[in-house]
């Protein structure tokens, strides 16, 4: 490939960095709070709730994300074809317009969010359970209520403990966004593959790899500095 061609490919891929980052950003935005909720549900004293939550986590972690993306994408059109579904499900399905431009993006985000929430949930649960009982008892002896205890005593300590593991997950997510190309979501990896075929050259793939690498490095630096910031206490 000539230098000019490489530059052209670079610019194309740079443009498709945006959809890649969109999947990354929205997945984080939804899966971190959802993961927190799932973690709390799993620790719920009502056995049925923690049991159902556990099944959800097991399925999300036990099956490939790529498969989940395919399911999320094809589930709605497939179900729409089938007859005698319960009424509420029909209503829900008819509310989804599969012709809509954003449908593919939404399906991808649903799959990523549900998958990553399961991973975050396990990290958060580990963090919450690692807080000594004495912290709850000290808060209780000071007459703090459950919410005050959780938000002001427990959560800040959990954040510090889950940052390293969460950072790992977040870096993995950057690379996992490439899985969205399985439903032809136009992001960097898909475009790089097309350009590879265009030019019969591997260089577009290396450029795509470079993009991921730089993103991963940026995240590594950020997470190291966050960890350092949180080191003001032991």
């Amino acid at each position: 490939m000539s230098a000019e061609e490489i530059r052209k490919v670079f610019m194309i891929l740079l443009k498709y960095l945006v959809p890649t980052l969109k999947v990354f950003g929205f997945t984080l935005l939804y899966s971190i709070p959802l993961g927190m909720i799932v973690a709390l549900l799993k620790m719920c004293r009502v056995k049925l709730i923690s049991w159902i939550t556990n099944i959800y986590i097991l399925i999300m972690r036990g099956t490939p994300l790529m498969l989940q993306i395919i399911v999320a994408y094809y589930a709605v059109p497939m179900l729409k074809q089938s007859e005698n579904l319960p009424g509420f499900l029909n209503n829900m399905l008819s509310a989804v317009n599969i012709q809509d431009e954003s449908f593919m993006f939404n399906a991808v985000i649903v799959a990523f969010t549900l998958n990553y929430a399961a991973y975050f949930a396990e990290i958060f649960r580990g963090g919450i359970e690692s807080i000594p009982k004495g912290q709850y008892e000290a808060a209780a002896s000071l007459s703090m209520n459950k919410l005050q205890t959780f938000f002001h005593v427990i959560l800040p300590q959990v954040v510090k403990r889950v940052v390293p593991a969460s950072a790992n997950e977040i870096i993995t997510l950057v690379k996992d966004t490439s899985l969205a190309n399985v439903v032809a979501y136009a992001e960097i990896t898909m475009k790089a593959k097309q350009q590879m075929q265009n030019y019969s050259s591997l260089i577009p793939l290396f450029i795509a790899g470079l993009f991921y690498f730089v993103l991963a490095m940026i995240l590594t630096v950020i997470s190291a500095s966050v960890e350092k910031k949180l080191n003001y206490y032991k």
């Binding site: 004495g134 912290q135 000290a138 007459s143 002001h152």
Partner: peptide, 20 residues
């Protein structure tokens, strides 16, 4: 002791009076 490790001494003491 069960002090709150993420709060400084002053904050440890004022947390409950302020919130509760």
């Amino acid at each position: 002791f069960n002090l709150f490790p993420h709060m400084n001494v002053l904050r440890n003491i004022t947390e409950a009076p302020v919130r509760v």
